[in-house]
Lab assay of single mutants.
Amino acid sequence: AVSDRLIGRKGVVMEAISPQNSGLVKVDGETWRATSGTVLDVGEEVSVKAIEGVKLVVEKLE
């Protein structure tokens, strides 16, 4: 699937994400809805860990 190529890629949070609410991330110039187990603020760099349906699962870049 086209989304599989995104796993491991870096992105930037465009709309804040929390465990309760999905947000938006931009990866390779495309905007995706994303979820995370932690709070991520706009502008934070993330990496794509998995894909669930049409949402990316991301975590903060260390």
Rank of each mutant, 00 (worst) to 15 (best):
E15H: 09
V58Q: 00
D28G: 06
S36N: 02
S36W: 02
G11N: 01
L24N: 04
T31P: 05
A16F: 14
V57D: 03
V58G: 01
V25A: 08
N21G: 12
R9E: 05
W32G: 01
E62Q: 14
D4I: 14
V48A: 02
I17G: 02
V46G: 02
I7P: 03
W32L: 04
T35D: 07
K49L: 15
E15V: 11
E44S: 13
E52R: 09
G23Y: 12
I51W: 09
V54S: 12
E30W: 04
D4Y: 03
A50H: 06
I17Q: 01
R9V: 04
S36A: 09
A16K: 15
S3L: 10
A1N: 07
V54W: 15
V13H: 00
V54Q: 10
E59L: 12
E15S: 13
G23E: 00
E15C: 12
I7W: 03
G8A: 04
E45V: 10
V46N: 00
S22M: 14
G43I: 02
R33F: 12
S22H: 12
R5M: 12
S22G: 09
L24E: 05
G43Q: 06
D28T: 06
G43N: 12
D28S: 06
T31W: 08
G53S: 05
V39P: 08
V39C: 06
T38L: 14
K10F: 10
R5F: 15
K49Y: 14
S47E: 10
V54G: 12
R9P: 02
V12L: 13
R5D: 09
K49R: 14
L6C: 03
V25Q: 01
E45I: 12
G8L: 03
G53P: 03
R33M: 06
V2G: 08
S18Q: 08
G8S: 04
W32N: 02
L40Y: 04
V42T: 06
A34L: 00
I51G: 03
A16R: 15
M14Y: 13
V2N: 10
V25R: 00
G29H: 13
Q20P: 14
R33C: 04
V13W: 01
D28W: 07
V57Q: 05
A16M: 14
K26R: 12
E44D: 12
Q20V: 09
S22L: 14
S3H: 10
E44P: 00
T35V: 13
E30D: 08
A34W: 01
G37N: 11
D41I: 11
R33A: 09
G37C: 08
G11S: 02
W32V: 03
G29C: 08
I7L: 13
P19S: 09
K55F: 15
V2K: 04
V12F: 15
E44K: 05
V48R: 00
K49H: 08
N21Y: 12
L56M: 06
V58C: 05
R5Q: 13
L6T: 03
L24H: 08
V58W: 00
G29I: 07
V57S: 05
W32A: 02
I17F: 03
T31F: 13
S22P: 10
E62T: 14
K49A: 07
L6V: 06
E52F: 09
R5W: 15
G11F: 01
L6M: 07
S18E: 06
V54I: 10
I17P: 02
G11Y: 01
Q20L: 14
T31R: 05
K60Q: 05
E15F: 15
K60N: 04
M14T: 12
V46E: 00
D28I: 08
I51Y: 09
V48K: 00
I51N: 04
S3E: 13
E59C: 09
R9Y: 13
L6S: 02
G8I: 02
V58A: 02
K60Y: 04
A34T: 02
